[in-house]
């Protein structure tokens, strides 16, 4: 049922990610507008207007900045999102159906650690530096539960290949079979896209944190990259936990897109509703509560797989 698509489909990946990213940005703007009591329809064009503004804004240069690392950090965010998306199947086919697709996805999303730290460091700004270090603490907090959630999905399928994980869900979705792993995955999806409650590395209390000194096209690349990252972690939830392209009537690719849109909408809504989380608090919650929870979840799934 699965296979590797022709190479040109790799060009489709950034287009789709940008489309979902635009949707996430527009949804956020609409929710904010509604909360502020203005017309939410204006939110639909807000990302386009903001992008145009950033494109004509002058780029900031800073004396003493480590320009190489600074620019590299910003560019790495969208690049990591696209690289991670290469193993996400659209319907039955992915650009590359690696035998270790789940590990590849994890390795590419971890690049965001380096990206944000470089952004924070390179700007030669105390706010940026604090933001970069804040994200490292965040990474150390969410990454272990996140890895156990990914491992549990792979364990349920007995394979690290994403198409095998999808095939293993033809009876029951993994979101039903392993709800704790699914919930932890969604939580860590918010955290790795430094989105919503986990947005403190670029938070207002740090005057923008790792993004404090960015302006113009550099800020546009970071923001677009962040929404693309949100889109790719949402898209990966579909093959891992929501049965991939399985569904009645519609073809597989349509179901994949519909489910991805649903997860993106959920993440955007959660990001809008939840208050900011302080990392010194979340670290203890992650290590004392989430790690044991995901370990027990993995144990339960392992026993289920063995006795099936």
């Amino acid at each position: 049922m699965s296979g590797a698509a022709p190479l040109w489909t790799a060009l489709l990946v950034p287009v789709l990610l940008l489309a979902f990213g635009y949707g996430a940005a527009a949804g956020t703007a609409a929710l904010r507008a509604r909360a502020a009591g203005t017309a939410p329809e204006a939110g639909l064009t807000a990302p386009a207007r903001e992008s145009a503004r950033l494109l004509v804004q002058r780029r900031r240069t800073i004396p003493g900045a480590d320009t190489l690392l600074w620019r590299l950090g910003g560019a790495l965010v969208p690049v990591a999102a696209v690289l991670a998306a290469l193993v996400v199947p659209l319907g039955p086919t992915a650009v590359s159906d690696l035998s270790v697709g789940v590990v590849w996805f994890n390795a590419m999303e971890v690049l965001i650690w380096a990206a944000l730290w470089m952004l924070g460091w390179g700007a030669d700004s105390a706010w940026g530096l604090v933001g970069g270090y804040r994200f490292l603490v965040q990474g150390l907090s969410y990454e272990l539960p996140h890895m156990f959630a990914l491992t549990t999905a792979a364990l349920g399928a007995g394979s690290l290949r994403v198409s095998d994980v999808v095939a293993a869900q033809d009876q029951v979705w993994f979101a039903v079979l392993m709800p704790v792993a699914f919930a932890v995955y969604l939580l860590s999806a918010l955290a790795m896209a430094f989105w919503g409650p986990f947005g403190t590395p670029v938070g207002r209390d740090l005057a923008g944190g790792a993004a404090a000194e960015l302006s113009g096209v550099d800020l546009l690349v970071l923001r677009a990259g962040r929404y693309m990252f949100l889109a790719v972690v949402a898209a990966m939830a579909v093959p891992l936990f929501l049965g991939g392209g399985a569904g009645p009537l519609l073809p597989g690719w349509a179901w994949t897109l519909a489910k991805t849109a649903g997860v993106v909408a959920l993440l955007v809504w959660l990001g809008h509703r939840l208050p900011a989380v302080r990392m010194d608090r979340f670290t203890e919650v992650a290590w004392v509560v989430l790690v044991p929870l995901t370990l027990v979840q993995a144990l339960v799934v392992a026993v289920f797989v063995l006795t099936r």
């Binding site: 690696l98 270790v100 994890n106 390795a107 650690w113 730290w117 990474g139 690290l160």
Partner: peptide, 19 residues
Amino acid sequence: SYLGVLVILMMVMEMMVMA
């Protein structure tokens, strides 16, 4: 492939902590 991708994964995380 598993070892190669694992080296990428672990080295990025490890070097960020080491930094």
